[in-house]
Nucleic acid binder design. Structure first.
Lengths: 80, 80
DNA sequence: CTCTTTCTAACGATATATGGTTAGTTTTTA
DNA sequence: TAAAAACTAACCATATATCGTTAGAAAGAG
């Protein structure tokens, strides 16, 4: 799978987790110390986040372990 | 955990997996379409790889799923 | 329709990822 | 100890991550 496709799916997954919790992009942004514009870009697959950021910043903000985050993302990918 | 520490541990984990298989940095490099100098830098924690690269490039090169890669890395972190 | 909230877009600045080259050091092995 | 293998270091170039700002579009509530 190429980078563009991967990141598009990753963004879709992040969006689905955020909406599942009932947060706006701004809610998530404040949790991760960033702004909603960047959250939007991430969810639209415009960026390719680092493992560090996913594991140590994003997953905890979503109240998940990094392993659960990746496990659920892989399932999400399979279902697409 | 800060980025520097995280990447140092990640590099150590990658090194341990590579050595477990019995590969040189050059062996791994050729598998991931890169050179041994960059593998050295990664193993020394000088870079913060993307989730895409870890999941789609590195883990398959180590004959692991991305979930197994992260799961084992988390165990590795705990043991340090 | 109007106001508010939410999201998207398009930038800028700085740091760094990625892939490459060349050189030199350390370790292994013959 | 000499040669080979393995690893580290220091760069370069290009693309992009990250964090920030400003503007505007889309959606919902009143």
């Amino acid at each position: 799978m190429d980078k563009r496709h991967f990141n598009h799916l990753l963004g879709g997954f992040i969006r689905s987790k955020r909406e599942e919790i009932g947060w706006t992009q701004s809610d998530l942004a404040s949790r991760i110390g960033n702004n909603s514009q960047n959250v939007s870009a991430i969810e639209r697959g415009m960026v390719s986040p680092t493992l560090y950021w996913c594991s140590e910043i994003l997953a905890p903000a979503l109240d998940m372990t990094s392993v659960d985050f990746l496990t659920e993302f892989e399932k999400f990918k399979q279902d697409k």
